[in-house]
């Protein structure tokens, strides 16, 4: 999938990292992105938000998308600019339909142990898009749009 048009970034500007499908290997791109955020002067609140969404997306890709299979891979593409961050994560799984997930904040679901990752990604990023298959997520954090 190409970068969504309204994210305002050309695919050619993105850095791509491919790692084996383990939570430990997923730390490599995460640390790269967090270093770029520090270098670009993001404040503590923005870094907290982006780190949270990024870790949820990586965890979903490793566990649910790639089914913890270490022979599969994760593809991470990203660009950190002073006021805008784009991150894409693709796994090799069959995907899912985000709209079908139950609302974890509904009274009847409040005490379920799972199902909060996607809603936290939506809460903490400016925009989230999935490809049609549901095995690739694009996340935008835009400090100007967030206000």
């Amino acid at each position: 999938m190409r970068c969504p048009e309204d994210f305002g970034v050309a695919d050619s500007e993105l850095t791509e990292i491919v790692v084996p499908n383990t939570l430990r290997d997923a730390k490599t791109p995460e640390e790269r992105i967090l270093q770029d955020l520090q270098r670009n002067g993001y404040d503590e609140q923005a870094i907290f938000a982006i780190k949270l969404a990024l870790e949820e997306a990586l965890t979903n890709a490793v566990k649910h998308g790639n089914q913890n299979d270490p022979n599969r891979q994760l593809t991470i593409r990203f660009l950190v600019q002073p006021r805008q961050v784009v991150i894409a994560i693709r796994d090799e799984g069959v995907g899912f339909t985000p709209e079908l997930l139950p609302d974890p904040t509904a009274d009847e679901n409040l005490e379920l142990p799972n199902g909060r990752g996607i809603m936290l990604m939506f809460a903490y990023m400016t925009r989230i898009r999935f490809n049609d298959a549901g095995n690739e997520v694009w996340m935008l954090k835009d400090l100007d749009e967030d206000g």
Partner: peptide, 17 residues
């Protein structure tokens, strides 16, 4: 603690029960 995840929330819910 200065960071949290949905998995940590799940762990706390299971513990609380």
């Amino acid at each position: 603690v200065d960071h949290l995840s949905s998995a940590a929330l799940g762990m706390l819910i299971t513990l609380n029960k």
